[in-house]
C-alpha cells in the first residue's frame, strides 16, 4: 500500500502539480459558467434606446431572470397612450420601437412614463420629458 511519505519523481511531481492547478481552474471556470447561465429572480433592466434623444420613446428590455412575459404601459400625465406585451427570453435583449407620432398626437409634449411589469408582478419604470 502507498504510504503518505511516498515521494514522486520530479517528472511525476511536475505533471501532478500542473494537473491539479489545471483541474482547479477548470472547476472555477465551470462554476462561473453555471453562475452566468442561471437566471436570477427579478434581474431585468429597461432603458430608452437613445438616452440623449428626447423625442423618442423606443425602449429595450434586458432579461437575466427566467423567460418572462413583460407587459408595458406608456402613460402621458395620467392617460394611457399605449399598452402591450412582449416575451423576452433569458439573457435576451429586446428592443421595442414606436412610431412616436401616433401617441404624440394623442398626448403632446410632456412627461411620458413607461411602466413595465414582469409575470411575478414586479414593476419598474423609466420616464422622460418629450420635447416635440
Amino acid at each position: 500500500m502507498i504510504s503518505l511519505s511516498h515521494t514522486f519523481s520530479q517528472k511525476q511531481a511536475t505533471f501532478i502539480v500542473i494537473g491539479l492547478i489545471f483541474v482547479s481552474f477548470w472547476i472555477a471556470v465551470l462554476g462561473e459558467w453555471f453562475s452566468l447561465h442561471t437566471p436570477t429572480q427579478g434581474s431585468w433592466e429597461i432603458a430608452f434606446i437613445e438616452p440623449q434623444d428626447d423625442t423618442s420613446l423606443d425602449f429595450c428590455i434586458f432579461n437575466a431572470s427566467k423567460k418572462n412575459i413583460f407587459s408595458y404601459t406608456i402613460i402621458q400625465e395620467s392617460s394611457v397612450v399605449e399598452k402591450g406585451e412582449i416575451e423576452v427570453d433569458f439573457n435576451e435583449k429586446k428592443e421595442i420601437f414606436f412610431e412616436e407620432k401616433k401617441f404624440f398626437e394623442k398626448g403632446g409634449e410632456g412627461i411620458y412614463r413607461i411602466e413595465i411589469e414582469d409575470a411575478s408582478g414586479k414593476r419598474r419604470d423609466i420616464y422622460r420629458y418629450v420635447m416635440l
Binding site: L4, H6, T7, S9, Q10, A13
Partner: peptide, 15 residues
C-alpha cells in the same frame, strides 16, 4: 528533465 531521477514531492504534500 534531469537524467538522474531524484525524489521530490511527497504524497502528503500532494494531498
Amino acid at each position: 528533465f534531469q537524467k538522474k531521477e531524484t525524489r521530490s514531492l511527497s504524497l502528503i504534500f500532494i494531498l
